[in-house]
Amino acid sequence: MTARVMTVAFAGIDTIPVDVQVQMASGLPAFSVVGLPDKAVSEARERVRSALSAMGLALPPKRITINLAPADLLKEGSHFDLPIALGLLAEMDVIGHEDIANFVVLGELGLDGSITGVGGILPAAMQASGLDRGIICPADNGAEALWAGELEILAPSRLTGLINHFKGTQILSRPCAPKVSSSPLSLPDLRDIKGQESAKRALEIAAAGGHNLLMSGPPGSGKSMLAARLPGLLPELNARQALETTVIHSVSGMLPEGGLIRTRPFRQPHHSASMPALVGG
Rank of each mutant, 00 (worst) to 15 (best):
G161M: 09
T65L: 00
P188M: 01
I171N: 10
F166A: 05
S221M: 10
R4E: 09
P83G: 07
V104Q: 05
A228C: 09
E244S: 14
L237G: 04
R133K: 15
P17I: 10
V18S: 03
A208T: 05
M55Y: 10
A9K: 09
V279P: 08
N164P: 10
R267P: 03
V41F: 12
G168I: 09
I16G: 00
A227L: 01
K75C: 00
E91M: 15
L187Q: 00
I248T: 11
D81Q: 05
F10N: 00
I115T: 04
G168S: 02
I13M: 15
T65I: 04
M215S: 06
G149L: 13
H79C: 12
P83I: 03
M225A: 07
E43K: 08
D14P: 07
S250K: 06
G210I: 05
E257H: 15
L88Y: 02
S26Q: 04
L243P: 03
R174W: 13
P178H: 11
R174A: 15
G110S: 13
V20I: 05
T245L: 14
M55P: 06
S50A: 15
P256M: 07
E152G: 03
I100P: 07
L154A: 00
A69F: 01
D38A: 14
V5N: 05
Q127C: 15
R45H: 09
F80I: 01
L172I: 05
Q196M: 12
L52R: 06
M6N: 01
E236P: 06
Q241D: 12
L57G: 04
V5W: 03
G35D: 06
A44E: 00
V247W: 07
I153A: 04
D19R: 12
V48W: 12
L226C: 08
D93H: 15
T2R: 11
G113R: 00
A273L: 11
